[in-house]
Design a protein around this nucleic acid. Structure first.
Lengths: 201, 201
DNA sequence: GAAATGACTAGATTAGGATTCTGGTCAATA
DNA sequence: TATTGACCAGAATCCTAATCTAGTCATTTC
């Protein structure tokens, strides 16, 4: 760890490295400061607590996912196709990002209790906002039915996506992601779209 | 506990009473046999193990729920309305039945580990079968689209319903059941139904 | 002879006390 | 003024003796 890098940056990088490797409880503040080559007191110049440091790492990690999710939601294709892509991107990203997955899907070995709930709430809130924005755009464009309540639909879509991705991670659910996405695309996508009068016979 | 009742019945009733009160781990076989006014060895004449006794109680409890679920699925109204009623009945019943809820929604204080997973698998399997039957009937009647894959749709509908009910039990999800049901009805229900040619202009 | 019983035991779990650890603080140092 | 690391209250862990419990089966009862 180069000490040319500013202390705060070093601490954030060290914190991410340690939390990803060992999880929240097993990582000590001394671990982080040692890895950052700084004193323990300096940690508290940048973070109010160990928990706040963890949340900062979650938020930085979440931005990486959200960048991909934005691309999925603004890509080409119909709304159902884009939602389907979003779920696939989510499953893919969370399959790889153990730190995010642990809090959102309850992997207690890495994080549990109040800090896990706080991290999950942050993720849920941001993903729901993203979905709500996409639904609003869809309504403005006329590709989503006017009667759809944006906030409720965003919340429900979040729960649906969450469940499908969780089922992918849970072998006993016996629901392969591809099959789930096909059915979801079929059922939920169709339920969302606006009905335009047919153009042909 | 009347000893006119046959021992097996007494054991089942006592097992249910004890497991509901104390959960799986805290209930001992001695607790059950004492409440049933029978000897410990008699327990093993009727159940192969403590876990099998628990599963017998889960199965009996599940039948009570499934009876209600059948009524919901065979009631009046459109398919979306009936699915909506099913989710509401589920939330209601599981809200009251702590024993079933503990295994299906992960309340570790009452049951956890292999026995909890076994109980959850039984519930998932039975509910999915019920949904698949309903979807098959719907396809035969022409009220569900022919293109819907029954088993996948049943699995996805289970996951969706499970997520919505879980969100009802989890305050931090911030998704009231009524709002979720409205949106679900709107989105999923519409996605399922068969498109009949309009009869009017 | 069949059914019921409860004493027994191997392994699991718990309780309690000693020891160690750790998040956060702040006096000392650079 | 910024940084450091010793300090400490409370939390967590470890160890070991004691207790508990699921399952068995020899004995008793009907």
């Amino acid at each position: 760890m180069s000490t040319i890098t500013p202390p705060r940056q070093r601490l954030i990088e060290a914190a991410e490295q340690q939390f990803r490797r060992f999880g929240y409880r097993r990582t000590t503040v001394d671990d982080v400061t040692r890895a950052a080559e700084t004193g323990k007191g300096s940690f508290y110049l940048h973070f109010s607590s160990k928990e706040d440091a963890y949340v900062a790492v979650v938020e930085a990690s979440l931005e990486r996912f959200l960048a991909k999710a934005e691309i999925a939601l603004h890509g080409s294709g119909t709304v159902p196709q884009r939602l389907r892509t979003l779920v696939a991107v989510t499953a893919d990203h969370y399959g790889d990002d153990e730190l995010l997955r642990a809090s959102l899907f309850g992997e207690a070995a890495l994080v549990e209790g109040a800090v896990a709930r706080r991290a999950a709430n942050i993720q849920r809130g941001r993903i729901r906002s993203l979905l709500a924005e996409a639904l609003k755009s869809g309504k403005s464009e006329g590709s989503i039915r006017d009667t759809v309540d944006v906030d409720n639909a965003a919340a429900v879509l979040f729960e649906i996506g969450w469940a499908v991705v969780r089922a992918e991670f849970d072998a006993s659910a016996d629901l392969p992601l591809d099959a789930a996405l096909d059915t979801l695309n079929d059922v939920v996508g169709l339920g969302l779209i606006a009905r335009t009068p047919p153009e042909g016979p």
